[in-house]
Design a protein around this nucleic acid. Structure first.
Lengths: 239, 239
DNA sequence: AAGTGGTCTAGACCACCTG
DNA sequence: AGGTGGTCTAGACCACTTG
């Protein structure tokens, strides 16, 4: 492990255990460099990590301070706002299953070509899945994914988790995701599969997910029963 | 301006203008250091900036690459997923006004004490505002804010933007925000003020907003007409 | 083995805040 | 003026990937 990560871990623990005064500043960088027998640059990389984690902040000419919401943060189980997919989110807490309503290989339409940056000739998977939480249907997920990334997409994979398949079998990493969240009245499918009554709305999430190398990997729309799911986001201000 | 920021700006422009091959790697760090007549550490800080912006990524032993979604990104006006409040979001595009339905100074209840990290004795403002976009009501915002941060909260401020007041008058900076987004059936107030029919849902956002120093500054619930507003988020994976 | 990025050093000077 | 963090240097060695 890199030295600056070790140092960051040590300082993080001290902060969480209250070993540093919550009011006053942290020891100055020069002192920390002496204590950890390293250079100031290395200390700065460690502090930079903790800054991105939202634990501390620095002000030029004043010092480095602990954010006062640190105690509140430890109550939330929110590490970072990272996309994990539905399956992993509920791991261990409940059983998640999927019915595959559609799994088709076809050519993309104009919108899909644009969103997934594909040529007319590059095929996509068009997959619709009904997802169950503890045997109760809670969302319908409609995904368009480029065939060139996924290769052979079997029902076995779809029944489990596409994200698991991506990371473990294809060894690809998720990068950025753009999501648009809105509320909507239930449509015909929602009423049929999610058993929504006309007055029971859905929460709709339309997202484009990119791999770490920037290739678009999924363009999807998911509709959740309003009483079975909400989205949590953490937005960091500028550092 | 810092040298590494200048260099980052130069490289960013080159990438956006297509001066670097989209397939191959960027010039190696040593070459860039020579070109910009600087040290490798400074080049690394510049590249680090572009990495956090989602423009490039590096792989140890291979090189630094341009993400292939760069062209798609420039279509979106999304720089970073920063919270700006409703007023600024629509600046110039439409007129935003507020009716103040309630503006009360009182003591916090147990939930508010916890969310805002307040003592029983510290007063809060309890504000309900009906927001109009081009004279049409589109959301109801219910905010609880600590009086010790805001000082005197006049109706003049509330009619405009609290976030503007924070930044410009109080010189405080927004830090992190936690938000929970869900869909809901319209309640009595939604039906009265947003003119929702029973089958017209609302998009609800419950958020806790912290200042840069970690003090909680707002605990609020906003309900939007489903056909007037959606939330867009950008989630970065791990770098 | 060669070439890439990742980390680290031991200094230095600058920018900013506070008394 | 003194003390803080912010930036920068000119090297060095390490970790990883590729031919």
């Amino acid at each position: 492990m890199a030295k600056y990560k070790d140092i960051a871990a040590t300082i993080r623990n001290r902060i969480l255990e209250g070993q540093y005064s919550a009011d006053g500043p942290l020891p100055e960088q020069k002192k920390l460099a002496q204590e950890f027998e390293t250079s100031r640059m290395t200390i700065q990389k460690a502090l930079e990590m903790l800054t991105y984690e939202g634990l501390i902040y620095s002000e030029q000419g004043r010092g480095t301070f602990i954010k006062s919401n640190v105690s509140a943060l430890s109550q939330l189980d929110a590490t970072v706002n990272q996309y994990v997919g539905t399956t992993k989110l509920f791991a261990g807490k409940a059983t998640v299953k999927s019915d595959i309503l559609k799994n088709e290989l076809r050519l993309p339409n104009a919108e899909e070509q644009e969103k997934l940056q594909l040529a007319k000739t590059e095929a996509v998977y068009d997959v619709v899945r009904l997802r169950f939480l503890n045997e109760v249907p809670y969302s319908i997920e409609h995904s368009i994914m480029p065939a060139k990334i996924l290769g052979e997409l079997t029902d076995t994979v779809l029944k489990k988790s596409i994200y698991e398949y991506l990371g473990q079998t294809l060894n690809l990493k998720i990068g950025v995701a753009y999501r648009r969240i809105s509320a909507d009245q239930p449509n015909q499918m929602d009423q049929e599969y999610l058993h929504c009554k006309p007055i029971e709305p859905v929460l709709q999430v339309t997202q484009t997910v990119f791999l770490q190398n920037g290739m678009p990997f999924e363009y999807s729309t998911t509709r959740h029963r309003y009483d079975m799911g909400s989205i949590t986001t953490i937005t960091q201000g500028n550092h």
